[in-house]
Amino acid sequence: MSFDRREVHLEIPVAPEMEIAATALVSALGEWMQMERDKIEEVKFALVEACINAFEHSGTPDRKVAIDFLLDPSGEIDGRAALQVGVSDGGHGFNPANVPQPEMMTKLKAPRKRGWGIKIIESLMDDVRIESSPQGTRIIMRKYR
């Protein structure tokens, strides 16, 4: 049986532009997997959103966010070659069902224009799961090659 999965782990501090540092790995891993350039860019955008959500909302006590990349170029997991990115924090968690769906018409007149992160992630990635508890949150995002 062939086994062609690769894992990369990264930990970044909650600090300005650390999310951009993490996207450099997406470029390298996506190119290694021969993923199309536009798809790599979409993974980078989704990763940025997942990181800044963790930075801003998690309340992670150690001020760190863990990122793990799983390369599955031969579709070991579900039969389709994919790059999977997980972003984890040790914060207080949240209920994803309580996050309102943002609408531009409403946001244009609202005093608070933010709250787009999860919508962007779900739109740019092929599969997204959010696991959250009072011990932390993990968002798992997959992009098929």
């Binding site: 955008f45 946001k107 244009l108 740019l124």
Partner: peptide, 30 residues
């Protein structure tokens, strides 16, 4: 990122409030 875009939405709101127009060009596909 979405925080930056939220600020662009604030600009758009003010432009529209003043009867103006806002356009973008040279966007990457993403």
């Amino acid at each position: 990122n979405s925080i930056g875009i939220s600020i662009l939405i604030e600009i758009l709101e003010k432009v529209l409030d003043q009867g103006g127009r806002l356009a973008f060009c040279h966007l990457t596909p993403t």
